[in-house]
Simulated scan of single mutants.
Amino acid sequence: MEMPGKVVIVSGATSGIGREVALRFAREGARVVILGLDDTRGQEVQTALQLQGAADCFYRRTDVSDGGAVQAAVAEAAARWGRVDVLVNNAAIMHTGALADMSEADWDKTMAVNLKGPFLLAKHALPAMPPGSSIVNISSVHAIATDAHSTAYSASKGGLEAFTRALALECHARKIRVNALRLGAVDTPMLWNNPDVRSGEEKLDPSEVASSGEVAELVLFLASARSQPVTGAVLTADGGRLPILGSHAH
């Protein structure tokens, strides 16, 4: 096993990418903290981890934009296991449509979850992270090339990649690595609920749609000793979506 006894916090872990990441780390022997807002799904993920042998795991309902809730969840993990070895900032939301039609509340909520959330989790986890620890931020090709309907989401992911580079510099002396994974189309509810995808305006080649399990393998790589020389980097794993978005050839 690659992560025996390691303490891993995964946000947005009740479905999609986060769920698969939690399961993947558990299979490698990690102790996993499942953060999310859906209690039914959270308990289901906890049970799934336990059934595959991960007795050391727990779910906590946590709004990542709430500083007090984040601090409490991280403190519980540190008190229970003494440290945090890996933080995976996966929780995100996406609002689509014209910017002029977007409410201020929706803009603020997008930034709160997608950008403030990683800040809060890193802020409270870092004091408990020993040398050799790792932070993995889940970004998107929309940080680089996007469409006309995803301004808030794109801005948040662009900010997350800048956050990744800056935090990696801050953490260098502490021997804590910080990287991001820039994804394209992934088989998750967020993808299929996108109005452009539902309407057919944005066409997808099934061969370019990654599975959550494939993404989890890449997160494991960035968090593990196999990627020891890598920090401050953004790994693109987009199935070809970046050049497609860049050319606006939907």
Rank of each mutant, 00 (worst) to 15 (best):
L35F: 03
G5P: 12
R80V: 07
A26H: 06
A233D: 14
G12W: 03
A223T: 04
G239M: 10
D205M: 07
S103F: 10
L220R: 14
M1Y: 06
I176V: 13
D38I: 15
E170P: 06
L37T: 12
D187P: 10
G5A: 11
R198V: 04
S65F: 07
D147M: 04
E214K: 00
A100G: 14
L220V: 15
M129T: 06
L204R: 04
L99S: 13
E217H: 14
E217W: 12
P130A: 12
V45E: 07
K175T: 10
A233K: 13
A30G: 01
A180S: 15
W192V: 11
T164I: 11
L99G: 05
K109P: 04
G67C: 02
T40E: 15
G184A: 02
Y153N: 14
V88I: 10
P229E: 06
F119R: 00
G82P: 09
M190D: 12
D66M: 01
A180I: 12
G82I: 08
D187V: 06
P131Y: 01
V86Y: 02
V70M: 01
T231C: 01
A105Q: 08
M190E: 08
R27Q: 10
K116V: 01
K157T: 14
T40M: 15
R19L: 14
I9Y: 01
G18Q: 00
A237I: 12
F119H: 04
V33M: 02
D63A: 08
I135Y: 06
G200W: 05
T96L: 05
K123Q: 12
A168R: 10
V178T: 13
I34M: 04
L204Y: 05
A249G: 04
W192G: 07
S133G: 14
G232Y: 02
A72V: 09
P118K: 05
G12L: 05
V86R: 02
P189M: 09
A237W: 09
S224V: 04
V70H: 02
R80Y: 08
V88E: 05
L115F: 13
E28T: 00
T14W: 13
H142P: 03
V74G: 02
G246C: 03
A112F: 11
A223C: 11
I138Y: 05
S103T: 15
I138S: 03
F58T: 00
N179W: 10
N137H: 02
E104M: 11
C57K: 10
A75G: 09
H142E: 09
V186K: 00
W81T: 13
A148G: 11
L126S: 05
L120A: 01
D187C: 10
G158I: 14
A112D: 11
G213E: 14
V186P: 00
T110H: 06
K203W: 03
D39I: 15
D147E: 06
